[in-house]
């Protein structure tokens, strides 16, 4: 975000960018398309420079060239295999790093999620001495029944699933209320910039 005390040129640049995006609300137009493409280009440019300074340079220049730690050459080159897809017949080798990443991610999920899951389940088993504890458990069981597709939803399970559906609607309603506030906060922030920092109203 521009600082309220930024140079007028900087404030004007940010204001023009803001208005160009808002112009889309009237209809799709050339100015909107221009800033849309400019944004993508600039983001990619930032990623390029950032990637060099923060991922590649420390490994290639510092670790490999200065410290002679050539061990990192292997994973670096392995990662570069994804570019093999640009070469005829290179689709196979390009899949190797993807296989590694997905496998590593799966390993992470299998390693760390069970504990989180257990804490969530055990945290729901509260003594039924308070209405709130009973309600948390009831909405949890109802919600789980609603997502139960492996057995037919009949009898008590169906009633619980119906209750669960209402509970999930309630939860999504709470998130929707939050979403309205969140999106409007962003909008108010942009308006505050235009009206106060730019127009000095």
């Amino acid at each position: 975000m521009p600082s309220p005390s930024a140079h007028p040129f900087a404030t004007w640049t940010a204001a023009v960018c803001t208005l160009a995006v808002f112009s889309y609300l009237y209809r799709d137009n050339a100015l909107w398309r221009a800033v849309e493409h400019l944004y993508i280009g600039l983001s990619a440019g930032y990623g390029l420079g950032y990637g060099w300074h923060n991922f590649l340079e420390p490994i290639i220049v510092t670790d490999m060239i200065h410290r002679h730690q050539y061990g990192y050459a292997l994973p670096l080159l392995f990662g570069l295999l994804v570019f093999a897809r640009y070469v005829r017949g290179g689709d196979g080798p390009a899949r190797l790093p993807i296989g590694l990443w997905v496998g590593y991610g799966a390993g992470y999920a299998l390693t760390y999620l069970p504990r989180t899951l257990w804490l969530q389940v055990s945290g729901s088993m509260l003594p039924p001495d308070r209405l709130s504890n009973v309600l948390v458990l009831a909405t949890l069981v109802g919600g789980l029944c609603y997502f139960l597709f492996t057995v037919g939803q009949r009898g008590p399970i169906r009633r619980m699933a119906t209750f669960g559906r209402y509970a999930i609607m309630l939860a999504l309603g709470a998130s929707f209320g939050g979403a309205v506030l969140y999106r409007y906060t962003i909008f108010l922030g942009r308006m505050a910039f235009l009206l106060k920092d730019w127009l000095h109203l």
């Binding site: 991610g105 799966a106 999620l113 009831a138 919600g143 997502f147 509970a167 999930i168 309630l170 939860a171």
Partner: peptide, 27 residues
Amino acid sequence: HIPATGAYRAIQIGATLGALATGLRVV
């Protein structure tokens, strides 16, 4: 704090079980 917590917990438990099942399929 109360009903939304139970309902979101149900969604999260479902999502976590899904992630674990996918992880197992990858392994």
